[in-house]
Amino acid sequence: MAPKRKRAATVASPKKGSKDLTKLDTLFNAYKDKGSEEDVIGPDGVEKLCRDLKVDPSQREVLLLAWKMGAKRMGYFSRQEFRDGLSELGAITIAQLRKVLPRLPLEVQDSAALDEFHRFAFSFCLTEPGQKIIDSEMAAQMLPLVLPEGRFVPQFCTFLTEQKDYKKVNADQWANFLRFSREVKADLSNCEDNPAWPLLLDNFVDYLRQHDEAAT
């Protein structure tokens, strides 16, 4: 089950007027997946949007944009998500949106927002209905986007791809890594303060210590 999202800014302000909405709809329609029965922008549309925005689809900004839209599925934006997200950002044209994008990383400087973004990134990776866990590989790719400057992130990603015990990562492990990255010092001196780290992180600590020993 995806964590419940409590996002204050999901409600599009209707005061902007229906004019903005129409513009957004037009913009939406430009990228809409014509072949699909659903009213969504599909992967091709997203790619086109990124091209127009002059960003790479694998860039952090795109993930942040998806977060702002509250996108539920990776590679898809529904009309509602598109409308809400863009009107919250105050952008109704591509040019405006392009200007807004560099500002997005500032939004997750606050730790509560980062929590939320981090949680979002996990659920964003859940593509199948009823899916609760993501591939370790996927987690290792996603994590640097979410926490580009987080402590232990590069090591943890290498660890995730090297270790064999866990092929999947669950929400609990995902959430605990953020805490781990925030709380544990780089020399691991205080990681025993919390004995309740998930086993995956215990293994990670062992892995780091072994590497340290090997290095010295």
Binding site: K132, N170, D172, A196, P198
Partner: peptide, 15 residues
């Protein structure tokens, strides 16, 4: 720990 994690997964517990 494994069992606790499984229980968290099954929403018997939370951290």
């Amino acid at each position: 720990k494994k069992r606790i994690e499984s229980l968290i997964d099954r929403e018997y517990l939370q951290r």
